[in-house]
């Protein structure tokens, strides 16, 4: 639901990256997106197209998403499991003492431009 807010923060970061690396045009951006961020890829791409095309730097720039599967670790038995499938309760030992290990990333990985 907050895809537009995420896109605005991405553009802000990309403008800084462009300034630091003397880029005037960015043609392609790859984003690592965790499975349980609550971000819907289709909405994110729609918001990206709308907002990116309104900037000089990112007009027409392609956004490529790399999805990262969510993994939870159990503090009771030390084992890991797929978060989306099993949720908060450890499927190995039924403990609720679990912590999300990965799957919450929204990270700009690479930027291509000149």
């Amino acid at each position: 639901m907050h895809e537009l807010g995420i896109v605005f923060h991405m553009i802000e970061t990309l403008e800084t990256v462009a300034a630091q690396n003397d880029l005037t045009v960015i043609g392609r951006v790859t984003l690592e997106l965790g499975e349980v961020t609550g971000i819907l890829p289709d909405y994110l791409l729609d918001c990206w197209r709308w907002a990116a095309d309104r900037t000089e730097l990112l007009k027409g720039a392609e956004l490529e998403l790399h999805q990262i599967p969510a993994v939870t670790v159990c503090n009771a038995c030390g084992r890991t499991y797929a978060t989306v499938e099993h949720g908060k309760i450890c499927p190995h030992c039924q403990s609720p003492e679990t912590v999300l290990l990965r799957g919450n990333e929204i990270e700009i990985a690479t930027v291509e431009g000149y």
């Binding site: 991405m10 880029l23 990270e107 000149y114």
Partner: peptide, 18 residues
């Protein structure tokens, strides 16, 4: 045309906000 650069950023999108 200028040479295309590929830059490894690896920055959290919300890092600026944080």
């Amino acid at each position: 045309m200028d040479r295309i650069k590929i830059i490894d950023v690896h920055e959290d999108v919300l890092a600026n906000n944080d």
